[in-house]
Amino acid sequence: MGWPPLVTVLLVLSAWELFVRWQDIRPAVLPTPTDVLDAMWDDRANLWGATWITLQTVFLGFGSALVLAVVIGVLVDSFGWVRRSIYPVIVVSQTLPIVAIAPLVVIWFGFGISSHAFVVAMYTFFPVAVALAQGLASTDQDAMNLLRTMGAGRVRLLLKVRFPSALSQLFTGARVAMSFAVIAAVIAQFVGAVEGLGIYMLTMKNALRTDLVFGAVTVSSAVTLLLFGGVVVLQRLVMPWYRPKTQGDAR
């Protein structure tokens, strides 16, 4: 029993379209999906400009988060005192609400890309660092012993066994992080920005261009999907030996 999820989406969109037309709802309240598509096409230049800024924000933020996460993940794994004294603070820091922090970051760092990227980094850093630390910690002890009998020290153990065996978990963390990187960027831009999808949404809302608000929402989720897919493709390239267990393989 079942059909492709895309069919579900099309069914919901059709129902929406029919409902709005039948009830004759004003476009400023709820535009039809086709209205949204039309509006997106008409304003494509601005929409693309905003998207490009948001993409840059995500790349900058996620990129720095990745570097920091690898450093912290390795430190947490290598030093007991980091694990005991600093790691818990990082974990607890994740309870800080993004909506509340974003305005502060904008106050401190201004309306530019780097300020929004900082918010993205704050929220994408954590799942990657945790995944990496866990991956490193769960390295097969015998595999490490094997390398020790070959004369390997700490650094080579890290590079030759621990890091490669933590890679799949690192990518899992990266996928989780990527799924809210765009949201973090949009929220940061909501608070104060010159350009970007967040400020675009806010402007269109104030102009009662509900169709373009929907348009920007559509683009954000499309960008998230694309970036998510990008991580999956990257994983295939980096880990050619890796075969994820799909439901078809379930035994």
Binding site: D142, A143, N145, L147, M150, A152, K160, P164, W241
Partner: peptide, 24 residues
């Protein structure tokens, strides 16, 4: 030392696994 488990690294090919000790 050859352990009970083969301990081949899944991310290395047959050649990559065989050269591990020499690499070290």
């Amino acid at each position: 030392y050859m352990f009970q488990k083969d301990l081949l690294f899944p991310w290395r090919t047959v050649m990559g696994n065989a050269v591990l000790g020499l690499e070290m």
